[in-house]
């Protein structure tokens, strides 16, 4: 049991460090990368919590979270590339690339 506690604490510490990177930035991509890293660690945390509380059903949630984390990263990148979720709407929006999406100034 003690090893689950140690691993859980390690994962939580890692999540806090990754969140620090997400807040510090400086560019948009650093934040997305940190968000993705937090998602990976959350999958591990969900599995560990399941074992820690004796309810391995948590693994199903971890599996779902793995799916969602991947799709969320792709969706965020797509949104910041096109400034819209739907490609059809893009024709109505101003020219692509006007946004300062290489970061630095945002935040």
């Amino acid at each position: 049991m003690i090893m689950f506690v140690v691993a859980t604490i390690a994962v939580i510490v890692a999540i806090v460090i990754a969140l620090a990177r997400a807040i510090l930035g400086p560019s948009l991509y650093d934040r997305v990368l940190a968000g993705n890293a937090v998602g990976t660690k959350t999958i591990l945390l969900l599995g560990l919590m399941g074992f820690l509380t004796g309810r391995p059903e948590f693994l199903d949630i971890a599996l779902l979270y793995a799916l969602m984390n991947f799709i969320a990263t792709i969706a965020i990148l797509k949104f910041f590339a096109y400034r819209t979720m739907s490609p059809q709407m893009r024709d109505m929006s101003p020219r692509l690339g006007n946004g300062n999406h290489d970061g630095g100034a945002d935040g």
Partner: peptide
């Protein structure tokens, strides 16, 4: 678990 925790912390610290 010990080695995995070490590498998870390593990755976060590198980040």
């Amino acid at each position: 678990f010990a080695a995995g925790s070490f590498f998870v912390i390593t990755g976060a610290l590198g980040l």
